[in-house]
Amino acid sequence: MREVLEVVSVSKSFVVPGAPAVQVLRDVSLTVGQGEFVGLVGPSGCGKSTLLNIMGLAERQDHGDVIIGGWSTKESSDRHLQQLRRAELGYVFQNFNLLSTLSVLENVMVPLVLNGARREEASRQAEELLTKLKLAHRLDAMPFSLSGGESQRVAIARAVVHRPKVVLADEPTGSLDSYSGEVVLDLLKEQVDFGIAVVMATHSETALARCSRVEHMKDGCLAGARGR
């Protein structure tokens, strides 16, 4: 199995003015292979979100390296990180984070357009994917008019439409009812079947049941993996 994401001995601490530095991640190493569905679990404040931010190249680590598709990002420029985020990564948020001023179709088109696709081509591909996700009737709807389940399906479509190597999901079912949560997890699993690796932070046992591997975090360290 080809490795698409490697976290090598990453440490991270935050300095709060007037208080001692807080070590959030301590020497964390993690490898994610192509088509792997990795669950990240742990108590609140253990460093899951920080690890996702660092894996998602939204934040820089103090020590260690994050390798995406064979590219070390340790010395990378902001521009290179941006290109990697744009092309190799997809993001799913608990609160969907759809762009409120763009329609459903346009939200899904954004990654394609940013990656240089022509507007017509991006629209065709986005429409195709949304149709598969049973959202063909909501193409022109605005995000505020969508239900939670619909919003998260659109968010997943936006995360995978440009075929990234890794999708990072933070509590993707956290704001959803059980049925919508199931639908969303099925969708993520489908992406895994297409060869996209998914790293998902969650507290949900149902969600963890879908993962091929679960990593436990505690006090900024990976406590160990449990394979499924």
């Binding site: 985020r85 990564l89 954004v110």
Partner: peptide
Amino acid sequence: ERRRELKTLYLLGMT
């Protein structure tokens, strides 16, 4: 109002 959306755009790779 849309400052959070800036983060999303940033993550999606917009310069």
